[in-house]
């Protein structure tokens, strides 16, 4: 089909559609009276809430850990001390992701060009994966924080072996998931299995969109390279 025919076909039909379109004035006027959130502002309260809860947690547990490190290092279980410290550090990183998301929400402008707006929106959605990766990375510390200081002195060999296998398995799984939960693996079976439920759909869609955006950007690079060569 030729270019002109394609455009003419579209034009002839659209002309008729435009002539026959009816705007419901009452509904349109109702829109201006609606008290609704903008596209992204509805996401803000949840992020701010997570940020505040996370900050309170980090301040409370963090200051307790610092105190224990300084004043009671030889009295408390080192398993608890280091496990809690790792957990607080990872929570701190998750807070960083929430701050990044709130900055993106603040910077998204719906009347800006499509490519830049969609990139910000897609990055905002896919950054949720970072929080998930950090959550998985906390797995091993939940298998160690309760161990007493004396476990290696008085613990029996079977218990130590069992504990060691559990902690090692959790550590390997956590590191593997942390490294592999990424855009490139979105089509793998295990990935689809973890992110199967409906609430992950926007994130998976955003990943696809980022691929398209990259493709448009890649095109940009190829063209500028060709221009430079000329």
């Amino acid at each position: 089909m030729e270019e002109v025919t394609l455009k003419e076909l579209w034009k002839s039909y659209n002309q008729k559609v435009e002539e026959n379109l009816v705007l419901n004035q009452k509904n349109a006027s109702d829109i201006s009276k609606m008290k609704v959130n903008s596209l992204l502002s509805s996401m803000k309260p949840m992020k701010v809430f997570a940020l505040i809860v996370g900050a309170i947690w980090v301040i409370a547990i963090g200051s307790m850990i610092i105190n224990l490190f300084v004043y009671a290092y030889h009295k408390v279980s080192l398993f608890f001390l280091y496990s809690a410290a790792i957990q607080v550090l990872l929570t701190l990183l998750a807070i960083g992701v929430y701050i990044y998301q709130l900055t993106l929400i603040h910077n998204v402008d719906i009347d800006e060009p499509i490519l830049s707006t969609q990139e910000k929106l897609a990055r905002l959605k896919t950054s949720t994966l970072w929080v998930t990766r950090l959550l998985f990375l906390q797995l091993p510390v939940w298998t160690t924080f309760y161990l007493p200081r004396s476990v290696f002195v008085n613990g029996n060999t079977m218990f130590l072996l069992f504990q060691g296998i559990i902690t090692l398995t959790f550590s390997l799984v956590a590191i593997w998931l942390f490294l592999n939960i990424k855009y490139e693996n979105r089509n793998k079976k295990w990935f689809r299995l973890i992110f199967n439920s409906k609430e992950w759909l926007p994130i998976l869609k955003s990943m696809e969109l980022l691929e398209q955006i990259d493709d448009y950007k890649e095109n940009k690079k190829i063209i500028s390279r060709e221009h430079r060569r000329e």
Binding site: V22, L23, N27, D30, I110, D111, E112, P113, I114, Q118
Partner: peptide, 26 residues
């Protein structure tokens, strides 16, 4: 076009079933 396309691309089937029609054909 910027607003309409930006909204359309990020519209992930929220499916709040609406009875009101906003723009229709005769």
């Amino acid at each position: 076009y910027r607003i309409s396309l930006n909204v359309a691309i990020s519209h992930y089937r929220k499916r709040k079933v609406r009875k009101d029609k906003f723009i229709t054909l005769k």
